[in-house]
């Protein structure tokens, strides 16, 4: 097999991704003698795939991007919570290989309290927007985190186009419901379709991203193809995947996880080390690739951009 040198490293925005660093990630978790002892053990096999060829080229780099070490592509695409494809973290990569069906166009409806509702195909929807790369931290409610180089555009740009009315206090997002394509939906683990929501000012915040790719590639099924939300200051489950509907509403939407466990999952679900979840203390997190946990920061380290959204709110009650 011909092994091509990766063009990806030629892209300016990827200078943060040192490929050799990325390929030898396990050696970079040396944080204590104990870790060093473990990582010094000989590797009997080492099966890391090269970074794939980019679909998006010449992407501009967002000022919101972090310069932290990227989580390897393999990990981002093999360790997923996407219950539509099964509840095990390896299920989505297993069962979303042909998702979405490329022979059909992906419809997205934008409706509700706005002046310019519309029905789009995915291709038409994203056409007007300039894609950029944004390297965000992702913090899962389960206590692990990643650093992901998303490709996408600002959610606010799309929402403004629809001209929300004064009644649009919240934005409700819905994932595709299709038990044939999404076998996990054949069991009522959650109420399908998956629903998430943001307050309108949260949705309009410049950090809120609609992602269509990562690592310069189109999104894979397991990561929420073709289009998904990314709100990096909130726990990962807020970043709804495979969106088919965006609706402006007056009342606070009830998300799938709020319905499943109202005492465990709140509407806001901001990353907050001071508010513990009944199952997981949220004070620390394990960055994928690390052995030991690190401190979790308020709003996942995005205080500067989003803290003002919540001034005067009791975040313990509005968890």
């Amino acid at each position: 097999m011909l092994i091509k040198k990766n063009k990806y490293s030629e892209l300016p925005e990827n200078q943060v991704t040192d490929e050799s660093l990325y390929l030898n990630r396990r050696q970079f978790i040396n944080k204590s003698a104990m870790i060093a002892a473990v990582t010094a053990l000989p590797k009997l096999a080492f099966a890391n795939n090269p970074i794939p060829e980019p679909d998006y080229k010449e992407l501009s780099q967002s000022p919101f991007s972090t310069d932290e070490e990227l989580t390897p592509f393999d990990d981002i695409t093999s360790y997923n919570n996407f219950y539509e494809f099964g509840t095990d973290k390896s299920d989505p990569a297993k069962y979303a290989t042909n998702f979405p069906d490329k022979s059909e166009s992906w419809p997205i409806i934008i409706d509700g309290e706005c002046d310019k509702p519309g029905e789009y195909t995915y291709d038409d929807l994203i056409k007007p927007f300039t894609l950029e790369e944004r390297i965000y931290r992702l913090r899962c409610v389960e206590g692990w985190s990643m650093v992901i180089p998303w490709v996408g555009f600002s959610l606010a740009d799309l929402l403004k186009q629809a001209q929300p009315s004064s009644k649009a206090k919240f934005v409700e997002f819905t994932t595709l419901y299709n038990p044939q394509q999404m076998p996990g939906q054949q069991r009522q683990v959650l109420q399908w379709p998956y629903v998430e929501g943001l307050r309108i000012d949260e949705a309009m915040n410049p950090l809120s991203l609609l992602a269509v790719g990562l690592y310069g590639k189109e999104l894979l099924g397991q990561n929420g193809a073709p289009i998904r939300l990314v709100t990096p200051w909130k726990y990962g489950f807020k970043s709804i995947k495979s969106i088919v509907q965006i609706r402006f509403v007056e009342k606070m939407p009830v998300s799938s996880w709020m319905r499943a466990g109202p005492s465990e999952y709140g509407f806001y679900s901001n990353v907050n080390p001071n508010v513990s979840h009944p199952r997981w203390s949220q004070t620390r997190e394990r960055r994928i690739g690390d052995l030991l946990k690190r401190e979790t920061h308020m709003f996942n380290g995005y205080q500067e951009q989003v803290a003002h959204l919540y001034t005067g709110m009791d975040l313990k009650r509005n968890f």
Binding site: R26, V38, L41, P42, K43, L44, A45, F46, A47, N48, T71, D74, D75, S78, Y79, K89, S90, W144, R286, I288, G289, L291
Partner: peptide
């Protein structure tokens, strides 16, 4: 233990 050495325990081997 073998899976740990050969990096076959997934993205979050400790978990």
């Amino acid at each position: 233990f073998y899976g740990l050495l050969t990096d076959q325990l997934g993205a979050n081997p400790i978990e």
